[in-house]
Each structure stands twice: as C-alpha cells, then as structure tokens.
C-alpha cells in the first residue's frame, strides 16, 4: 500500500500493471475476510440445509435417528404425488393463497389511498395501522382463536347483539368455515404490510400527473385506471409475489388457530409437510414435499412476474 501513496501517479493514467494487481490482491484478501462471516452464515444456515433436504428426499428415512436409510430415488416424490392428502392440502393452500392475497390487495389499496389522503394526524393513523402487522403471528393466531371461540368469543357476541345470528356458532367447527376464518385472521394481520408497500408507490406518483389529468377533465375512475394503477404496477408486483409466496407457506397461524382441524379442513401443504416429517417421522417424504412446495412457488413467481411485466408495459 505504501508504494502507492509514495509514488506520484498521473491523474488519468492507471498505475503500473504489477502494482495494480498487487493492490487488487490485497483488496481481494480483505474482501474475502469481510465476506467470510456472511458466507458461513449463508452456506451453513441456508445452502447446506437445502442440499441436505434434497439428499434426504431421495432416501427412505423414517426416524430422526435412522441409520438404515435405503436409497429410493424419486420414490418419495412419487408417493407424495400419489397421496390424496397431498392434493387435498394443495387445493386448500391454493384457495387460501388466492383468497387471502386478493383480499389483502383490495383492502390494502383502499387503506393506502386513505392513508395517502391529506388529513390531520395522518402520522398517527399511519402509525396505528401498522400495529396488526407488528403483532407476532402466533399471538395473532391465539387472539383470533379467542375471538372465534364457540362459547365466549367476541365475534359471536357481536353478531348476536346485532341480531345477525340467533345462537352462538362454532366458527372453527366446520372445515370450510374455519379455513375462511383463518383467512380473515391472516388478512387482518397482513393488510397493513400490503398497504404500506402500496402507500410507498402512491406517494411517489408526481402530483403534476393528477393536475394534468384534471385539466383534461378526467374523472377519478379514469385517473385511477390511467395514472395510479400503471404507476403502482411495480409495487403491486412486489406485493403479489411476496404475499403469494408467504401465503403458500402459511404455517404458524394454522398451528396456532386450528392445528389443521377440524377434519383436516385447514391443513395446508406446509402443515401437511410438517405433520408428515415431524409427527409421522417420515423425513424422506417430508423432504420431497418441501421440494414440491419450492417448485410450485418458483412456478407461481415466474408466471406472476412475466404477466405483470407484460401488462406493465402495455399499460404504460
């Protein structure tokens, strides 16, 4: 390093080749040591488990301490795909993902528009709205489980006092109803996140565009369609991809609210995988299921990004 500072170097000319290489090598060493902790974390905590899971998915492993683990090739994938439980939970997961993402997007857009409106104490509203998202999922699950309780739940009390029902219902008692109730809990928690993503998009739209549109006598629906929506496409695409992937992996809220019941009505694919791997101790099939989930998520994300990119260009 000292040679570099001592030798007068012309402004534009590069240092001699030998010196430059040494400097790069020094930089390289420094970079290596700086990056090492991150690399260890990434490989140790992410890459290694991913590859290990892939490996296990090709073996029959029916105990966490199994020593005798015969190689079964793609057998675990085949048996996962052949099981009716897999397709049933896949269907429920798809329903959960589509419904919750759609609801969160619509409600989030409305919320973002409200939070973007000029009003007093806007900072306060913005701060309050974020609270549901700040609640840990497992706490959220316990809370909604209490709200929907068949005997003393607040939801029953409200509906009864409004005269909408004439006796208490077990909201988490019917398979399909309880799946929808879990969606309600998930939407309540996640809408603020979606709203904030969209709010960021909204605030970045220049005011001049609205003014120009108003001069052209455009109404609100037209401005929404021609200005807000196209310019929000990047935010929406991020939200949709994020939420689809998150919703597809839904686990903790199910674990907290219903544990997959009643009659497996809320057993999503992630919960099914957990039960297969850890409760039934069928780690081979469990690992195969994890990889199937990853594949579905990759496919979904690719389709979304393609569609949104294309529609984004066509709208602009």
């Amino acid at each position: 390093m000292s040679t570099v500072t001592n030798t007068p170097v012309p402004d534009v000319a590069a240092p001699p080749v030998g010196k430059r290489r040494r400097r790069l090598e020094n930089h390289g060493k420094l970079a290596f040591w700086l990056l090492l902790p991150a690399a260890v974390a990434v490989f140790g905590v992410i890459v290694y488990p991913i590859l290990r899971t892939l490996l296990i998915s090709f073996f029959q492993v029916d105990s966490v301490l199994a020593v005798d683990t015969p190689f079964v090739g793609l057998g675990n994938y085949a048996s996962a795909l052949a099981s009716p439980g897999f397709w049933a939970s896949m269907g429920r997961t798809l329903y959960f993902t589509l419904t919750s993402t759609a609801l969160e997007l619509v409600l989030g857009l409305g919320l973002a528009a409200l939070l973007n409106a000029p009003m007093k104490f806007r900072w306060l509203f913005r701060a309050v709205v974020v609270v549901p998202w700040a609640v840990p999922t497992i706490v959220n699950a316990a809370m909604w489980k209490g709200i929907f309780n068949a005997e003393y739940g607040a939801f029953n009390a409200v509906l009864l006092q409004l005269g909408l029902i004439d006796h208490y219902q077990a909201w988490l008692g019917d398979p399909f109803t309880s799946l929808n109730m879990v969606i309600v809990a998930d939407v309540w928690k996640t809408t603020p996140l979606v709203a904030f993503f969209l709010l960021a998009g909204l605030t970045s739209i220049p005011k001049e565009l609205y003014e120009a549109a108003r001069l052209d006598r455009a109404g609100w629906p037209r401005m929404f369609r021609s200005i807000v929506l196209p310019l929000l496409v990047p935010s929406i695409s991020i939200v949709v991809v994020l939420r689809t992937v998150e919703a597809f992996k839904v686990f903790d809220i199910i674990y907290g609210m219903t544990r997959g019941g009643p009659a497996n009505g809320t057993q999503t694919i992630a919960y099914y995988t957990y039960v297969t791997a850890f409760s039934d101790q069928n780690y081979g099939v469990g690992s195969a299921l994890s990889y199937l989930i990853v594949m579905v998520i990759l496919i979904l994300s690719t389709i979304y990004l393609r569609v949104l990119r294309r529609s984004g260009m066509s709208l602009v």
């Binding site: 890459v47 290694y48 301490l65």
Partner: peptide
C-alpha cells in the same frame, strides 16, 4: 459456485457421520 461448495460440505458431513443421510450414528 454455491452448489459446488455445498456439495463439498455435504460430502464432508456424510463422511463424518458414517454415510447415514440423517447424520446419526448407532
């Protein structure tokens, strides 16, 4: 790159654990 390194790590782990994919000894 990660794949190559990961595979190396994996091979090392398997060698250490006596060739069981669970990593468990008797």
């Amino acid at each position: 790159k990660p794949l190559a390194i990961g595979a190396g790590l994996l091979a090392g782990a398997l060698a250490l654990s006596g060739c069981s994919v669970t990593g468990a000894g008797p």
